[in-house]
Each structure stands twice: as C-alpha cells, then as structure tokens.
C-alpha cells in the first residue's frame, strides 16, 4: 500500500509539470509583446517593463522562466499581477466560492443522480426508468451555457423565483440553481452509471443469497445490493469534484459568481499570464489529488482490490 502510494505520487509529478508547463508556455511564450495593451492606451513605462522583465525573466528562454516560476511557487510565491496585486490573494478570495459551488453541485449530483439511478435500475423499463433515460439524454446533450442561460432567464427573469445572479455573500440557497447547472451533465452520468450498476447487480448471486437468507427486502436492497452498486458511482463522484472546479467558467460567468473560473477567464482575456498559470496550477493539483484519492477510495470500497 505504501509503495503503491509512493509510485502514484511519483507518477503525478511529470503530469503536473507537463500540464503546468504547457499552460505556462501557451500564455507566456506566444509571439507578441506581452505588454501590449497592459497600460491603457499608452505604451508602458520603460521602468515598469524592466521590472516585469526582471521579475519573470522575460528575456530568457521559456524553460528558465518556468523553472524560476516553479521555484518561487514552491516557496509559496504565486507572483503578482501587472497591477501589483498578489495572485495568491486572488486565488484565496475566489477559490472558496468555487469550492462551495462545486460542493453544491456534487450534493445535487449525489441526491438527484443517485436517487434517479437507483429507482430506475430497480424498475427496469418502467415509466420512471424511461423518464430517467430520456431526461438524462437531454441533460447530456444540452451544453451548460444553454442550461444556465435558460434557467436563469426562466427562473430569474420571467418567473422571479430566484435572483438572476448570486450575491457576494454566496448563500447556500442561492447556489442551488447554479449548482444544478454546473452539475447538470454529471447528474445525468451519475444516474446512468447507478442505473446500470443496480440493474447488473440486481440479478447477482449474492443478492439471491441474501433473499434466501430471509432478509427483509429493505435490507437486501439497502445493504447488499446498494453497497456493491455504489462503488462505481462513488468513484465517479470523486473524480467529478476535481473536474467541476475546472469546468465552472461558464456557470460562474452566467450567474456572476466571483469564483476561480471567472477569475481565470478574466485573466486570460486581459492577458494576465501569471494569474492564469497560478490558477491552473491550483486546479491541476486539486484534480490530480482527487484522482489519487479516488483510487485509494476504490480499494477501500472493494476489498477484492489490493494495491501492491
């Protein structure tokens, strides 16, 4: 187990470096003047250019730049924006909001997705099953921006049930609709995976044994069937938490949530390269760590799996 963990951690390193370097290269090393449009209409003052060039080693090749960036990063220095704001500040203020949104989305996925999946898996080909199949198809097919836009317009503008945008206090109740939008496709996938898993395990021999033992149906389904069927669902949920945060750009934009997605989008558009890289570093790290945790969780859920 310990050796497996070590090996997995070592595998993460090249992936982490690769991904962050890719982004670093894309945002910094592209042809063109990095200072164009940075200081309003005028050209940037030479002093400023000199400072930033020094700070980010802009006169050196991209590998040196990346290396020194990473060195700073390891010491906790994310760098500053062109307007001298600490990037770590930006991340610290916006990250909790995204995490909150992602957690709401995850909860919705778990409740709606799992509930629908289990019910339809238990009653294959019934009315509910077909309803779940059709509605998940729609959720998978609808691009997030369409779902978000339609719900915001219908619920917020037309019917006035919710406020069209989320206030800066980020109350949990305000996050329900944005959370659903963010998790809409995943809800569908969770439901489908749960449905297939339940339907497959329903006829398993051990379920038959549980019935033959004279256990009440509640216990057969709730303990024996569910415990086995949940394994793929829980792992999917785990991976999704990492993915949701990286996918929050559109949702945060639509509902005006000051999260990491909105910050990174703004940074990309305004060419705040250091901010882009900083945020991507955090996102990739969370994603990789979540995937590792899911692997370990998998072993915990299924005793047949042992990592050597």
């Amino acid at each position: 187990m310990g050796r497996y963990l070590l090996r997995r951690l070592l595998q993460l390193v090249p992936v982490f470096i690769g991904t962050t370097f890719l982004i670093y290269w894309l945002v910094w090393a592209v042809p063109g003047d990095p200072f164009a449009g940075k200081c309003g209409e005028r050209r940037c003052p030479d002093q400023y250019i000199a400072f930033m060039t020094e700070k980010y080693h802009l006169d050196q090749n991209v590998f040196v730049q990346y290396g020194s960036y990473m060195k700073n990063l390891l010491q906790g220095d994310f760098g500053q924006t062109f307007s001298q704001r600490e990037i770590s500040d930006i991340i610290m203020t916006s990250y909790p909001n995204t995490l909150k949104l992602a957690l709401v989305a995850l909860a919705i996925e778990a409740i709606i997705g799992l509930g629908a999946g289990v019910l339809s898996g238990l009653r294959r080909n019934g009315f509910l099953d077909n309803l779940v199949l059709v509605s998940t198809l729609f959720l998978i097919a609808l691009p997030v921006f369409v779902v978000g836009f339609v719900l915001q317009w219908l619920l917020g503008v037309q019917w006035g049930i919710i406020k069209p945008t989320v206030s800066s206090e980020m109350r949990w109740s305000e996050l329900i609709v944005p959370g659903f939008v963010l998790g809409s496709a995943s809800v569908a996938y969770i439901a489908r995976v749960a449905r297939t898993s339940i339907a497959e395990n329903r006829r398993a021999d051990y379920v038959r044994t549980a019935i033959a033992k004279g256990l009440p149906m509640r216990r057969v389904v709730g303990v024996h069937l569910l415990r086995n069927s949940l394994i793929p669902v829980v792992t999917l949920l785990g991976t999704d938490l990492g993915a949701l945060m990286g996918g929050a750009i559109v949702t945060e934009g639509i509902f005006g949530i000051n999260g990491i997605g909105r910050q990174v989008f703004r940074a990309i558009i305004t060419k705040e390269s250091a901010t882009v890289v900083g945020i991507v570093v955090v996102l990739v790290l969370v994603y990789l760590v979540m995937n590792l945790l899911v692997d370990l969780l998998y072993a915990a859920l299924d005793p047949r799996i042992r990592y050597e």
């Binding site: 051990y206 038959r208 044994t209 415990r227 086995n228 394994i231 005793p303």
Partner: peptide, 8 residues
C-alpha cells in the same frame, strides 16, 4: 464465491 457478497 459468487453467492457470498464480495464486499462484506
């Protein structure tokens, strides 16, 4: 093997 529940 298949009649016993693998996760308990």
């Amino acid at each position: 093997l298949s009649a016993l529940n693998p996760v308990f």
